[in-house]
Every structure is written in C-alpha cells, then in structure tokens.
Computed example of a mutant assay.
Amino acid sequence: MKLSPISLRRKGFTLVELLVVISIIVALAGVAFVTAQKAMNTARERQSQKDCADLALAINNFIADHQGVLPVDSVVRMDKDKCITTSVEDPSRLITILIDREKGPELDRVNRTRKKYVSGAIVDNPKGGIFMNGRDAGLYDPWGKPYYVVLDADGDEEIQDPTSKKERPIFSRVIVYGTGPDGTGSQLDHKILEPEFTEDNVYSWKK
C-alpha cells in the first residue's frame, strides 16, 4: 500500500505551538503564584489578629491575678497610656514576665503567680512566635515585627485610641496592635495617624 504524503509527515509540535503552550503555562503559574501569595498574606493577617487579641487577654488576666499590677519591669516609668513593644530588647520585658522567665530572687519577680500567660511556638529567629535571647523573650508577628501594647497606667480603664485624632477612649486596661506586612504605622514611628502607613495594621479592639 502506498502511503500518502500526509501520513509520511512527521508528527509533533511546531515551534509556534510550543511557544503558545509555554505562554499558557507561564500565565497559569503567574496566576497560581498570586493566588498563593494572597492566601498566605490572609493567613498571616488572621494569625496577627489572633495574636493581638490573645495578648490583650493574657495581659488582662495577669492584671486581674496581680490586683492591678502591670506586667512590666520596675525600671520602666509608666505614664498614662504608655506604649511599649513585645520586642526582646524592650526594657519593659513584657513577654519575659508573661511567660515566667524572669531572673533573680523570688521576691523581685513581677509574675508572682508563676503562671505562663502567653503560649506559642518558640522560634529560632524573631518571626512568627516567641523568640528567646538568653532568658529574655519577645513576641513577633508573622512578618518579623514586634507588637505594640498600650497600657493604662493610672487604672481608670480608659485608653485614648491611638488611631484617632479626636478624644476617643477605649474602655480597657490594655490594647494591642501590629503593623502588618509593611512594618510601619506605630506610635513609636509617629505614623499611627497616617492612613497610607496604617491601612494594613491589625488591632485587638477593632477589625
């Protein structure tokens, strides 16, 4: 039987067809990457929101157990609405006290109950958990930044909302917030009132 020229023609993809297929694969990979990044950022935001709420609850529990004593080192001067951080370098040593890792004699400890008020993964670097530096500890958000804690030092259970230019009290002994993916928008960098820096912030007292 004599084969036709078509049946003799070699089967396979042409260069144009290969380029089209490669372009489609690249486009699909790009869409998948963007979708994965959005899902990851959403998960991090939810974790940060949970951290803020859990930390505020932990501090309120500590204050209740210690008859109004704040979980900060005595060397820190506590004024009204004092803002401190959860950094391992912060002199307040907030997280160190809350997880009962204080040094020194029993009588010098702030955490007299010896309870562990904050739980979480111990991480090897300051990102997404409790980071230890010797016996001192810090709590960091999923982007590697500390959280910001505002404490009501005078005990009237009112804190001025740091995100509002108007007098807007929050009726609590403690509020906590994180600066989100961009790491900016805190009271300490003086950008807490600038929307372009705070639009990705997370808060314990609002969503």
Score class of each variant (00 low, 15 high):
residue 64 A to R: 05
residue 64 A to N: 08
residue 65 D to F: 05
residue 67 Q to I: 02
residue 68 G to R: 05
residue 71 P to Y: 06
residue 73 D to W: 02
residue 73 D to C: 03
residue 74 S to K: 14
residue 74 S to N: 13
residue 75 V to P: 00
residue 76 V to Q: 04
residue 77 R to I: 05
residue 78 M to L: 15
residue 79 D to P: 01
residue 82 K to R: 15
residue 82 K to C: 08
residue 83 C to M: 11
residue 85 T to P: 04
residue 86 T to L: 08
residue 86 T to E: 14
residue 87 S to K: 02
residue 87 S to H: 09
residue 87 S to F: 02
residue 92 S to H: 07
residue 94 L to Q: 06
residue 94 L to V: 04
residue 97 I to Y: 06
residue 98 L to T: 00
residue 100 D to R: 02
residue 101 R to Q: 15
residue 101 R to A: 15
residue 103 K to M: 12
residue 103 K to H: 09
residue 105 P to I: 01
residue 105 P to L: 14
residue 105 P to N: 13
residue 105 P to W: 11
residue 106 E to M: 12
residue 107 L to I: 04
residue 108 D to F: 14
residue 109 R to P: 03
residue 110 V to Q: 05
residue 111 N to R: 07
residue 112 R to P: 01
residue 112 R to N: 05
residue 113 T to Y: 13
residue 113 T to R: 11
residue 116 K to V: 08
residue 117 Y to D: 15
residue 117 Y to K: 10
residue 117 Y to R: 08
residue 119 S to E: 13
residue 120 G to M: 07
residue 121 A to T: 10
residue 122 I to H: 03
residue 122 I to V: 09
residue 123 V to T: 11
residue 123 V to N: 11
residue 125 N to R: 12
residue 127 K to D: 03
residue 128 G to W: 00
residue 130 I to C: 08
residue 131 F to C: 05
residue 132 M to L: 14
residue 133 N to L: 12
residue 133 N to S: 14
residue 134 G to K: 09
residue 134 G to L: 07
residue 135 R to C: 02
residue 136 D to L: 12
residue 137 A to M: 06
residue 138 G to R: 06
residue 138 G to K: 02
residue 139 L to R: 01
residue 139 L to G: 14
residue 139 L to K: 01
residue 141 D to A: 09
residue 141 D to V: 02
residue 143 W to K: 01
residue 144 G to I: 03
residue 145 K to S: 05
residue 145 K to L: 11
residue 146 P to Y: 15
residue 147 Y to Q: 11
residue 147 Y to W: 13
residue 148 Y to Q: 00
residue 148 Y to I: 00
residue 149 V to I: 12
residue 151 L to C: 08
residue 151 L to M: 12
residue 152 D to N: 14
residue 152 D to C: 04
residue 154 D to M: 05
residue 155 G to L: 10
residue 156 D to W: 14
residue 156 D to P: 06
residue 157 E to S: 13
residue 158 E to I: 10
residue 158 E to F: 07
residue 160 Q to S: 12
residue 160 Q to K: 06
residue 160 Q to W: 02
residue 161 D to Q: 05
residue 161 D to R: 01
residue 162 P to C: 13
residue 162 P to R: 09
residue 162 P to Y: 13
residue 162 P to E: 15
residue 163 T to G: 04
residue 168 R to S: 11
residue 170 I to S: 10
residue 171 F to T: 04
residue 173 R to Y: 11
residue 174 V to W: 04
residue 174 V to G: 08
residue 177 Y to A: 02
residue 177 Y to M: 04
residue 178 G to H: 09
residue 178 G to D: 00
residue 178 G to L: 10
residue 179 T to N: 08
residue 179 T to R: 06
residue 181 P to T: 02
residue 181 P to L: 06
residue 181 P to C: 03
residue 181 P to M: 03
residue 182 D to Y: 01
residue 183 G to K: 00
residue 183 G to S: 06
residue 184 T to V: 05
residue 184 T to Q: 13
residue 185 G to L: 12
residue 190 H to V: 10
residue 191 K to Q: 15
residue 191 K to D: 10
residue 193 L to R: 00
residue 195 P to L: 08
residue 195 P to E: 09
